[in-house]
Nucleic acid binder design. Structure first.
Length: 956
RNA sequence: ACUCGAGUGGUGGAACUGGUAGACACGCAGGACUUAAAAUCCUGUUCGCAGCAAUGCGAGUGUGGGUUCAAUUCCCAUCUCGAGUACCA
C-alpha cells in the first residue's frame, strides 16, 4: 500500500470527513479533566484568502492543543472571525457589493482553506463579530462601560449609580450636593459624562479624509493610516472614547503577572509611557496668571534658562508683550499651516519669544518665555521649563536662538552637547548644591510642595482611545441623543445594523447611518464602533457561544478562566492586546468574570515574508529613473524590443559588460552600438514565484503568462539559464510572491505542509518563505509509512516484542519531543521525529509496540497519517483520544561510557567509566590512571572538571 | 536619534546552566538499482594545507579586545540587519 495522502481516495480527506461526522473535536464545558485554553488571534476575513504566512501560528496552536489533549487536558481551541471593519466597507464602496455578502463569502473561503490543513477547531463554537447574536453582547458590554466610572480610591470600575448617589448626597470637589441637585439635566449629563469609562467628548482626533473616519492612535503609522496608507490630520470632533488612561497603572502592573515576551511587555509599557515628576507653578512677571510646567527632573530647576509653551495654549494671548504680539501671531499661524506629516518629516527648530518672563521661585531670576512646536499641547501641561545643559532638545533650541546656558553639572557639561545624566553633583543650585542629582529629585519635590508652588505628578503618554468611526460596517452604538443629552437606547439589544445600499459619508463628517431617515428619526447615534470593539472580548464568547441570556455565563468563564496560551503576531501589541486587557479588567471589576488578565501566556509568531523574483528589461533610451531600487539605475524603456537580461548578483558595470558580450549575438531587430551602452539601463519587473525554480526562471512559462513576455528575448547566462533577482518583502498578491497553502496541501499533503512550516525555524522568528525544503519533510513521512506498509507486500508491522535498542530509540524520542513541544520548539521536535524514523529504519524495526507510541507522538504534528496508521494497527477510537506515552528514563541508562579525557581542554584519550560516578569518584579514577599520570609528569592536577555525561578535563 | 532583538557552512537552521560547533533538512558531488526516467538506498559535503589512504595539522560562530583550563554562549568596544517608538520634557 502506498502513502496516498491526497485526492478523493486519499487518507487526508477521508479522516477530515470522519472527524467531522464524529464531532471528534467537540469540547464540553463539563469535564473531570483539567482545562486548557489555547487561542489563536482570529483572522480578519479578507478577500485575498490565506497564504502560507497565515497558518504558521494556527499550526503551532493546533499542535499544542492536540498535544495537551493527549496529555489529559480538556482543551478549548476555537476559531472565529473578526468580520466587522474598514476593509470590507472599502471593498464594498469599490465593487458595490454589500459588506455582509462579501464577508460571508470570504469566511466560507477561509474555513474551507483552514479545514484542508486539518485543524482541530470546535467549529460549533465559531464566533463572528458581525453577527447580531454576537454584537448584541458587544453593545451590552459597551453599555457596561458607559454606565461605569473609575473610582480612584478603590482603583477599579464601579457603577455610575454609585457616583450619582455620591453626588446627590455629598457632592464632589467641583460642586456641593446642593449645587448638584440644582443642576439641570444637561449640566448633570455633562458632569456624568466626564467620568464614564466610555464617554463622548470633543477632542483632537486623527481624521483620515480618504477613509472618511477617525482612527485610534495605534491605527496611525507615521502620519498615515495603517490600512491603505492615506494621510491623517488632527481635527476637533465629537467622538466616543474609552477611558483607558484610567487603567494605565493597572495595565502596567498587570504585565508583571503574565507570561509575555520581554519585548512585548516593553512595547506595551512604552506605549503607556508612565513618567513621574512634578508640576511646578512659575509666577509671571506683571501678570496674575501662573505658568504651570511638567518636568521629570525637578532637580535641575536651577538650570532653567527659558520656558517653552506649546503654540496651542490659550495662556499665550494673556501674557505676550505688545512688542512681540505680531511675531507670536505669525508663528502660531505658521504652525497651524503645517500638517502633521510635514512636522514629522522635517524636524527643524522653530519658535518665538513671547516677550513675557517667568519668575524663578527659588532665586527670583527672570526667565524668558518662548513658544515652540517642539512642545506638545497634549502632554503634561503643554509647557516646559527648559534646561539646556541637561536636555538635548532644550540645548539645540538655546543654541539656535543664542540663549545663554547655565551649567549646573560642572564637568559633565562640555558646552558641546547636553548631558542628561543623573550622576552629577549639582552646582550653582541654591539649596540643592552639593547633592547628587538622583537624590536631589526628591528633595526638590518636597521643597516645591512645601512652598505650595507645585505637586508631585505622574503622567502617561497613552491617550484615551478614540472609539467611534464614521463608517457603516461596525456595531451601532445603543445610544440616543436628545437636545445634546446622550442616553441609553431603550429597545432590546441587539440594536441591529440597518441594511443600506450606499456607504457614502453622512453630512458634517457623520457616518453613513446619518443618511438613513428611520435611523435619524429615532435620534440614534450615527457613528459605529471601531474594529477593535468586537475583538476586545471574543475569547470570552467562545466559552459559552450560544448563550442568549448573557455574554458568557459566569460558570463557563470560571471553568475556562484565562486563556492559557494565546498565539498571534506582534502587530497587535499596543492595540488589540491593550484593549482586551482593559475590557477584561472592567468586566472583572463589575463582577461579571473572575479574572482580570485575559491571557496568561502570549506567543508571538513571526511573519512569513514573501520572496519576490525579478527579471530586468534592458533599455537603451533615456527616461525618468525611479530611484527606489538598488543596485542599478533604471530607465523606463520606450524601445519596442522587449529584452530581459539575467542580472542576478551583478553590479552595474558587470551588467553592462554582460549585455555587451551577449546582446549582439542575439537575433533582435537591431544591433546595439557602443553608443547604446553608454545610456543602457535595466528595469526590474516582478514575476510570479511559481515560474521560478529557486532563482532559475522558466522562460517558456513566463512567455505564456502575459502578452508582453510572449515577444520577449531573454539574455541568459552561459549555461543557458536565466537567473532572477531576489528581494524579501511582504507577502502580497500584487507582488506575485504569494504561495497558496491549498496547492501545497494538494501536492504534498496537509501533514507535510504542517510539519514543513514548523521545520522552517522557530515559530517566533520571521523568515521569507521558501518551498524548496519541503521534499525533505515529505520524504520523512513516506519513510514513516514504510515502517508500517510495504508498497508491494502490504502491512509489514508485527506484534513482536521490542528489543532494548529499539525501546531506547523510542524513549529518547519521547523525551525530546515532549520537551520540545512543551516549550514551543517545534522545529527541533520535527528534527527529532526524523532522527527517530531514520534510526528505526536502520534497525528495521516494524514492531507495533514501538510504532504505536510513535504515532501518538506524531499525532499533533501530522494528524492524518497518524490517524490512518493508528487505525491500521487495529486501534479503536481516534488517536487524539489516546494517552501520551510515558517516558521511561531507566531505558536510557548505560552502565559505562567512553569519556574523552582532556588536559587543559585538549582531548588526549578516551577512558571507560561508569555513568553513576560522582565528582569524587571521577577524581579518584583519574588520579589512579597511570597513563594520565604519565602525561602529568608527576605533577598533581590542579583541578579535575567532570561535566556530567560529557567529558573530563584535567587542569594543570 | 532612542530602546529592544539578531548576526553560525552554498541555504534554512541545531548546540542543556560556558563543556568535543555545524544536529536535522535542503542543495551539490559521486555511486547502486533501472533499457531509461521517477522513486528508493548508500557515500561525501565548514574552510585551508599535507597524504594513495585511514588520517593528521591549522583556522573557524560579523569585526577587534577581555575574563576562563574551556566562550556561538559572559564582559567591553565596533559594524551590519530586523522590530518598536519617534520631539512625551
Amino acid at each position: 500500500m502506498e502513502y496516498a495522502f491526497n485526492g478523493k481516495e486519499g487518507i487526508e480527506q477521508k479522516w477530515q470527513e470522519k472527524w467531522k461526522q464524529a464531532h471528534a473535536y467537540r469540547v464540553n464545558n463539563v469535564s473531570d479533566k483539567p482545562k486548557y485554553y489555547v487561542l489563536d488571534m482570529f483572522p480578519y476575513p479578507s478577500g485575498a484568502g490565506l497564504h502560507v504566512g497565515h497558518p504558521l501560528g494556527y499550526i503551532a496552536s493546533d499542535i499544542y492543543s492536540r498535544y495537551k489533549r493527549l496529555k489529559g487536558f480538556n482543551v478549548l481551541h476555537p476559531m472565529g472571525f473578526d468580520s466587522f471593519g474598514l476593509p470590507a466597507e472599502q471593498y464594498a464602496i469599490e465593487t458595490g457589493q454589500h459588506p455582509a455578502a462579501t464577508t460571508e463569502k470570504n469566511i466560507e473561503t477561509f474555513k474551507k482553506q483552514l479545514d484542508k490543513i486539518g485543524f482541530c477547531y470546535d467549529w460549533d463554537r465559531e464566533v463572528r463579530t458581525s453577527s447580531p447574536d454576537y454584537y448584541k453582547w458587544t453593545q451590552w458590554i459597551f453599555l457596561q462601560l458607559y454606565n461605569s466610572y473609575f473610582c480612584s480610591t478603590l482603583q477599579k470600575a464601579r457603577p455610575m449609580a454609585d457616583l450619582l448617589q455620591q453626588y446627590e448626597t455629598a457632592g464632589s470637589k467641583d460642586f456641593t450636593a446642593a449645587e448638584w441637585n440644582a443642576f439641570n439635566e444637561k449640566e448633570k449629563s455633562e458632569w456624568l459624562m466626564k467620568r464614564r469609562l466610555a464617554y463622548c467628548g470633543y477632542g483632537e482626533v486623527n481624521w483620515c479624509e480618504a477613509l472618511g473616519t477617525v482612527l485610534a492612535n495605534d491605527e496611525v503609522v507615521n502620519g498615515v493610516s495603517e490600512r491603505g496608507g492615506h494621510p491623517v490630520e488632527k481635527k476637533k470632533l465629537r467622538q466616543w472614547y474609552l477611558r483607558i488612561t484610567a487603567y494605565a497603572d493597572r495595565l502596567l502592573h498587570g504585565l508583571t503577572t503574565v507570561d509575555f515576551s520581554d519585548a512585548m511587555k516593553e512595547m506595551q509599557s512604552n506605549w503607556i509611557g508612565k513618567s513621574s515628576g512634578a508640576e511646578i507653578d512659575f509666577a509671571i512677571k506683571g501678570s496674575d496668571r501662573n505658568l504651570r510646567v511638567y518636568t521629570t527632573r525637578p532637580d535641575t530647576i536651577f538650570g532653567v534658562d527659558f520656558m517653552v509653551l506649546a503654540p496651542e495654549l490659550d495662556l499665550i494671548q494673556a501674557i505676550q508683550s505688545e512688542a512681540q504680539s505680531k511675531a507670536v501671531e505669525e508663528y502660531i499661524a505658521y504652525v497651524k499651516s503645517r500638517s502633521e506629516r510635514e512636522r514629522m518629516a522635517e524636524k527643524k527648530i522653530s519658535g518665538c519669544f513671547t516677550g513675557a518672563f517667568a519668575i524663578h521661585p527659588f532665586d527670583g531670576r527672570e526667565i524668558p518665555i518662548w513658544i515652540s512646536e517642539y512642545v506638545l499641547a497634549g502632554y503634561g501641561t503643554g509647557a516646559i521649563m527648559a534646561v539646556p545643559c541637561g536636555d538635548e532638545r532644550d540645548f539645540a533650541f538655546a543654541h539656535y536662538y543664542g540663549i545663554p546656558i547655565t551649567n549646573i553639572i560642572g564637568d559633565f557639561y562640555t558646552g558641546e552637547a547636553a548631558n542628561a545624566t543623573k550622576d552629577a553633583v549639582l552646582e550653582k543650585s541654591g539649596f540643592l548644591t552639593g547633592l547628587l542629582m538622583r537624590d536631589a529629585i526628591e528633595v526638590a519635590i518636597t521643597a516645591i510642595e512645601e512652598k505650595g508652588i507645585g505637586t508631585r505628578k505622574v503622567n502617561y503618554r497613552m491617550r484615551d482611545a478614540a472609539f467611534s468611526r464614521q463608517r457603516y460596517w461596525g456595531e451601532p452604538f445603543p445610544i440616543t441623543w436628545k437636545d445634546g443629552i446622550a442616553s441609553e437606547w431603550k429597545g432590546d439589544l441587539p440594536l441591529r445594523l440597518p441594511h443600506v445600499d450606499k456607504y457614502g459619508p453622512g453630512p458634517d463628517g457623520a457616518g453613513p447611518l446619518a443618511n438613513i431617515p428611520e435611523w435619524v428619526a429615532q435620534e440614534l447615534e450615527t457613528n459605529t464602533m471601531p474594529g477593535y470593539a468586537g475583538s476586545s472580548w471574543y475569547f470570552l464568547r467562545y466559552m459559552d457561544p450560544h448563550n442568549a441570556a448573557s455574554f458568557c455565563d459566569r460558570k463557563a468563564s470560571d471553568y475556562w478562566n484565562q486563556v492559557d496560551v494565546y498565539i498571534g503576531g506582534t502587530e497587535h501589541a499596543v492595540g488589540h492586546l491593550l484593549y482586551s486587557r482593559m475590557w477584561t479588567k472592567i468586566l472583572f471589576d463589575l463582577g461579571w468574570i473572575g479574572f482580570d488578565e485575559p491571557f496568561k501566556k502570549l506567543v508571538n509568531q513571526g511573519m512569513i515574508q514573501g520572496s519576490s523574483r525579478f527579471v530586468y528589461s534592458i533599455s537603451t533610451v533615456g527616461g525618468t529613473p525611479p530611484n527606489h531600487f538598488q543596485p542599478f539605475e533604471f530607465l523606463i524603456s520606450n524601445d519596442i524590443i522587449q529584452q530581459y537580461a539575467s542580472l542576478f548578483d551583478k553590479n552595474k558595470e558587470e551588467a553592462v559588460e554582460f549585455i555587451k558580450n551577449k546582446v549582439n549575438k542575439l537575433s533582435v531587430s537591431r544591433s546595439f552600438t557602443a553608443d547604446d551602452f553608454s545610456s543602457i539601463s535595466f528595469t526590474p519587473h516582478r514575476v510570479p514565484v511559481e515560474y521560478v525554480d529557486g532563482v532559475n526562471l522558466d522562460m517558456a512559462a513566463l512567455s505564456r503568462f502575459r502578452n508582453d513576455y510572449s515577444k520577449a528575448t531573454f539574455v541568459v547566462e552561459d549555461g543557458g539559464e536565466y537567473i532572477c533577482g531576489i528581494e524579501v518583502e511582504k507577502m502580497s498578491k500584487t507582488k506575485y510572491n504569494t504561495v497558496n497553502p491549498d496547492e501545497l496541501c494538494e501536492k504534498y499533503g496537509a501533514d507535510t505542509f504542517r510539519m514543513y512550516e514548523m521545520f522552517l525555524g522557530p515559530v517566533e522568528q520571521s523568515k521569507p518563505w521558501d518551498t524548496k525544503g519541503i521534499e525533505g519533510v515529505h520524504r520523512f513521512l513516506r519513510k514513516l509509512w514504510r515502517l508500517f506498509n510495504n508498497d508491494i507486500k502490504g502491512a509489514v508491522w508485527t506484534n513482536e516484542k521490542a528489543t532494548d535498542a529499539e525501546l531506547k530509540i523510542l524513549h529518547r524520542s519521547i523525551k525530546k519531543i515532549e520537551e520540545d513541544t512543551e516549550k514551543f520548539s517545534f522545529n527541533t521536535a520535527v528534527s527529532a521525529f526524523m532522527i527517530c524514523v531514520n534510526e528505526l529504519g536502520d534497525v528495521k524495526c516494524h514492531k507495533k509496540e514501538v510504532l504505536e507510541k510513535m504515532l501518538i507522538l506524531l499525532a499533533p504534528y501530522a494528524p492524518h497519517i497518524a490517524e490512518e496508521l493508528w487505525q491500521q494497527l487495529g486501534n479503536e477510537g481516534f488517536v487524539i483520544d489516546a494517552t501520551f506515552p510515558k517516558f521511561d528514563a531507566s531505558l536510557l541508562t548505560e552502565s559505562s561510557k567512553e569519556y574523552p579525557i582532556s588536559i587543559n581542554g585538549k582531548v588526549r584519550a578516551n577512558m571507560s567509566l561508569s555513568l553513576t560516578l560522582t565528582q569524587e569518584e571521577v577524581e579518584a579514577a583519574v588520579t589512579a590512571n597511570e597513563t594520565i599520570l604519565k602525561w602529568l609528569d608527576g605533577n598533581p592536577p590542579k583541578k579535575i572538571i567532570y561535566v556530567k555525561n560529557k567529558m573530563i578535563n584535567v587542569v594543570i
